[in-house]
Amino acid sequence: MTGEALLTVDGLVTKFDAADGVVHAINGVSFDIRPGETLGVVGESGSGKSVTMMSLLGLIPSSVGRIAAGTARYRATSGEVDLLKLSERQFGRIRGREIGMVFQDPISSLNPVMTVGRQIAESLQRHLGLGRRESRSRAIEMLARVGIADPSHRVDDYPHEFSGGMRQRVMIAIALAAGPRLMIADEPTTALDVTVQAQIMALVRELQAESELAVIWVSHDLGVVAGLADRVLVMYGGTIVESAGVDDLFENPQHPYTRGLLASIPGTGLAGSRLASIPGTPPSLQHELKLCPFADRCSHAIDRCARERPGLTPISADHSSACFWDIDASRQRDGVAVIAQREGM
């Protein structure tokens, strides 16, 4: 987990063109991930987790959205590329081959009229140039690797013949078939029940132990991320508000939003006590973000938060927060970067 980053995202901005104006979905997201590392990305719906991942793989349809700024340097086997500037054709050698993706709903994410074996084989034929027979036996191997029993028979089955958890294993087999070094999993266990969720998480850990596979695991479930990630990004309003090692984040959260999230996990309070929640609603992303996105829901907000937008600033080694206020010391933090200001202030 040491050494050079596999992927370095810097200042990603993604916008959508809606009927009633521009939606500023991603407002400057920067992070990196090293080989073999597991990066958890948490945040509520609409915080920009999925859009960030789709942006990195060029899966935002050009008819609805565009990447307005940023770089995403990926160390591919053939040399470094900027994912945000690739053509559709160039992406063909990245998707599946370098970066595999697993989606949330395994039944709708698999082609219903194609056997799982062929869906795995497609990737092998495309990226490794394997023939029909070779790719089929490799597909059987992949099914065995992701823990499907009797893979040589199951390879000819269709997605509807598998259970939810088995389908997600098939999705992982598809994503990893051509041997990518990064797997992006977008809420892969959200549609599964808890025991199956644990099995899938265990499987991913096993697969990571076999190779230097880096994993970006997107979830709105802090519990899942706590059990899996090395490092965690907390997203809010299309920005990263806090980034820290997993233990550090849970023991010493710095951003008021992260604290709110942790406080609202059921089971941490007394039995029968009211569930904690964060008052207010997520921010509208209709305007360019020039103030702290969390300011109007934050109990620690000061005047400055409504005028200036704090940048993600290091607090200690490998722990950053985007907040002007130091909650523990009850005073403004020094040296917080200001990355935007409202005009006329």
Partner: peptide, 16 residues
Amino acid sequence: EDFVRTARSKGLARRA
């Protein structure tokens, strides 16, 4: 459909 997104995320050419 979601499975079309999966197919694209495998790196298949647009035609395929």
